[in-house]
């Protein structure tokens, strides 16, 4: 399938999709962030949502997680329309979701071990010995079993995100949302996070939504990608299809061009008029 602008989602079948966004609009005050957006996230796949800063990628994750309400449209997660859920139902759904925040969002007063144990302690009554083993297994998955006694401020950015990832998978969710998982990381940490996202998807079958503006890394790990801009889908397809797209929007983003459909200069009045007025 070639890259299509505002094309229909690749699969309308609910059984194949874990998340269905249907005709969703979202506004901050009077500013439109998402405009009649329709997209699907297939089960068991890694789907990348790419786009420039402020294009509504994180808002989309917050809509899926029920932290924001759309002004119109449906946000279906595992067949449930998230905006219609009451707080109890929403929390039950969230127990089956994981989210990795941009900077990890580790609880600063708890050690690495206690951070990973936090969701288990809150939602289950596992005996301490079982809890310990579960936490150590998750920390081993992200390669940080030896860091269990460290406090969050003793971790590097990459380590903090790995701990947050261990915490996100500790309740074995059906889906994980990654909000800019590569931002601010060195190449090694970036590679580690990318490897973990891919492995968690392959080994545990977790559906993954990766929100990123890092084209290279997101393309490397995703099965399918959407490119957002101006509150709508500018392009979609497999990473290879996006790379081969001739759409000016897609080309500007994929090639990192400073000028194009997204202009370099912020809209302003005539330059000369501006200068003359100031000089007068």
């Amino acid at each position: 399938m070639s890259v299509l602008q505002n094309a229909a989602p690749m699969n309308r079948n609910n059984n194949g999709n874990l998340v269905d966004i249907r005709d969703v609009s979202f506004k901050y005050s009077t500013r439109t962030i998402l405009d009649n957006l329709t997209l699907s996230i297939p089960r068991g796949k890694v789907t990348a949502i790419m786009g420039g800063s402020g294009c509504g990628k994180t808002s989309l994750l917050n809509l899926i997680g029920g932290r924001l309400r759309p002004s119109q449209g449906q946000v279906l997660v595992d067949g449930l329309n998230v905006p219609d859920l009451n707080i109890k139902e929403l929390y039950e759904l969230r127990k089956r979701m994981g989210m990795l925040f941009q900077h990890g969002a580790l609880l600063t007063d708890l050690s690495v071990f206690e951070n990973v144990a936090f969701p288990i302690r809150e939602h289950t009554r596992l005996p301490e010995a079982v809890l310990r083993n579960v936490v150590l297994m998750k920390l081993q998955t992200v390669g940080l079993r030896g860091a269990r006694d460290l406090m969050p401020w003793e971790l590097s950015g990459g380590m903090a995100r790995r701990v947050a990832l261990a915490r996100a998978i500790v309740l074995e969710p059906m889906m994980i949302m990654y909000d800019e998982p590569f931002t601010g990381l060195d190449p090694i940490s970036m590679g580690v996070i990318a490897k973990l996202i891919r492995e968690l998807n392959q080994v545990l079958g977790i559906t993954s939504i990766v929100v990123s503006h890092d084209v290279a890394e997101a393309s490397l790990i995703s099965d399918y990608a959407y490119l957002l801009g101006d509150g709508r889908i500018l392009g979609q397809g497999t990473p290879t299809e996006l790379q081969q797209s001739t759409s000016p929007h897609v080309r500007q983003f994929m090639d990192g061009l400073p000028d194009g459909p997204v202009p370099y200069t912020y809209p302003a009045r005539n330059y000369l008029d501006d200068l003359l007025e100031k000089g007068a």
């Binding site: 997680g65 127990k95 989210m99 925040f101 580790l106 600063t108 969701p119 809150e122």
Partner: peptide, 21 residues
Amino acid sequence: LMKATEQLAGMEMMAVNPVMR
């Protein structure tokens, strides 16, 4: 600071009510 560093949002996404916790 917990709000600014997304710790409260993180709790919400872990289905833990930050007002309660």
